[in-house]
Design a protein around this nucleic acid. Structure first.
Lengths: 134, 134
DNA sequence: TACTTACCCTACCAAAAAAGTAGACTTATA
DNA sequence: TATAAGTCTACTTTTTTGGTAGGGTAAGTA
């Protein structure tokens, strides 16, 4: 399941996508409109900035804004960033891979099945963007 | 991600599927062979019994065994039981549905996308069984 | 240069979930 | 009736999640 943090992130990103290229938006505005705890949202937006999805301006007239076209920001990227692995097992994760102990990946039915699930999921999430949330 | 509990459950079920219709298997044997903490495994197997996937015999010569053909036990069923919802959001879950607050499901891009993901995942997990793990 | 606005950073806290443990109890079989 | 083996209740520990507090720092503006 997507964490609450992820759901907040998507709400905020949708809000910013609607205002793309219309200048910075205050954290406080997003928090109020989307009913997200202010300080929690600060952390999330900062993280998205560090990942180069958002950018910000300080001082009066400042705020957050999308760094690139909403149609260029993949869902898979955002989920990996705020929610973690997309795969159901570490041993089939592309970005968070960890080897299985006590199980040989070459002949493991579960492994193969989870690769199928991963690929089906990624086929969707790698081809959808913030644009599709609007 | 699948919890450790789920991974243990699948290891145990695979072990029992290999021994289908060959009599009861000791919890201790499964725990040892699959390197699962004994008491933790006890809880898992009991849960699977209550869900009518496994059955057991007490006393000497007892143990656990699959209640029906491995090919009849769907992956989706087991995952829902030991791991919880398969969908990425409560508002798109078939078996663990909860309504979204602050968001109208009728015009929510995320909602629609998560339904797609859910269906792609279920298409696989509803059509694979314990047989496929062997 | 001083003031104000608004993001930045570090640290902490509490609740919930996941993972694992303990021990007494019941039932079946030899 | 002794023993083997699952059943049940309850607890503990660790990790993750969700959230809070408060001061620091950069950028505009008068």
């Amino acid at each position: 399941m997507l964490s609450k943090k992820s759901q907040y992130a998507f709400k905020a990103l949708t809000y910013l996508a609607d205002r793309y290229e219309k200048g910075p938006v205050l954290i406080a505005e997003i928090a109020k409109k989307k009913k997200i705890p202010l300080k929690f949202l600060e952390n999330i937006l900062l993280e998205l900035k560090k990942a180069e999805i958002l950018d910000s301006k300080k001082g009066k007239g400042g705020g957050y804004f999308l760094r690139k076209d909403p149609a260029k920001v993949k869902m898979a990227t955002v989920i990996r960033l705020v929610n973690g692995p997309i795969a159901m097992l570490p041993c089939v994760s592309l970005y968070f891979y960890e080897r299985c102990k006590n199980c040989d990946e070459k002949h493991c039915g579960l492994h193969d099945m989870m690769i199928e699930v991963r690929d089906a999921t990624l086929h969707i999430l790698e081809n959808r963007t913030l644009r599709d949330l609007q």
